[in-house]
């Protein structure tokens, strides 16, 4: 894709200029995020339908979740969102160290989030609330069958979100390396920007997951 030697402004051959390329990249990423939004909305729709049908059971089941721990996790993820936004800004202004710092902070916070999430899963596993892989379902609230449905959604939605976190972290790590090498400032800024968009989207999904699984039932 690159014809010109490195350390100069690189425009892919199919584009006329950098602005066109940047517009295309940004639009492409936004369209991709639209597809991600619709992907999650399918799962949220199913949750909403069942919440509508089994409101009381689902609320009771939701009260068993570690909502404070997950609330702390929300703070962590929102902070990482700030960190990546600052990193984008720094990269844009050509401040390499600040950008790298912001990205590393984001990655660290993301890992902490996953660790806490893992702890949550572990304690739910020990409490017998993991209703799959032939695990006995030891929920003692009312209507365990419908409650199981709630827990299925809990694990599917948070799992899907965690999978996106893992992908996002992998992308951020690659971008961090590219930022560290800093071959072409404009290009790095563009890459940080695109990765930052994805991370912000992961943030948004978590806000919705947290609200609809942990808070709505309370």
């Amino acid at each position: 894709m690159t014809r010109t030697p490195e350390h100069t402004v690189i425009v892919a051959h199919q584009f006329e200029n950098l602005e066109q390329q940047f517009d295309a990249d940004l639009l492409g990423m936004w369209l991709f995020l639209v597809t991600e939004a619709l992907l999650f909305s399918g799962a949220f729709l199913a949750l909403a339908v069942y919440y509508h049908q089994y409101h009381d059971t689902f609320s009771a089941a939701a009260r068993e979740l570690h909502w404070l721990l997950a609330g702390a996790n929300s703070v962590i993820l929102l902070t990482s969102g700030l960190a990546v936004a600052l990193a984008e800004q720094a990269a844009d202004q050509g401040r390499r160290r600040a950008a790298l710092l912001g990205l590393l902070a984001t990655i660290a916070l993301g890992l902490v989030f996953l660790a806490i999430k893992g702890y949550e899963y572990h304690s739910e596993y020990q409490a017998g609330l993991m209703p799959f892989l032939q695990q006995p379902f030891a929920y003692d609230g009312p209507n365990p069958h419908n409650a199981m449905l709630f827990y299925n959604f809990y694990f599917v939605l948070t799992g899907l979100h965690a999978a996106h976190m893992v992908i996002g972290l992998a992308v951020l790590m690659v971008i961090a390396v590219l930022t560290w090498r800093w071959r072409d400032g404009a290009r790095v800024a563009r890459q940080v920007r695109i990765a930052g968009l994805y991370w912000a989207f992961v943030d948004i999904v978590w806000v919705l997951v947290y609200c609809s699984l942990y808070l709505v039932g309370r």
Binding site: G81, L82, A200, I204, V207, L208, S212, L215
Partner: peptide, 15 residues
């Protein structure tokens, strides 16, 4: 849900 929507709006418009 409204508060969550507000948070989503802030992230989308700013970050």
């Amino acid at each position: 849900l409204a508060v969550a929507a507000g948070m989503v709006a802030v992230i989308a418009t700013t970050f």
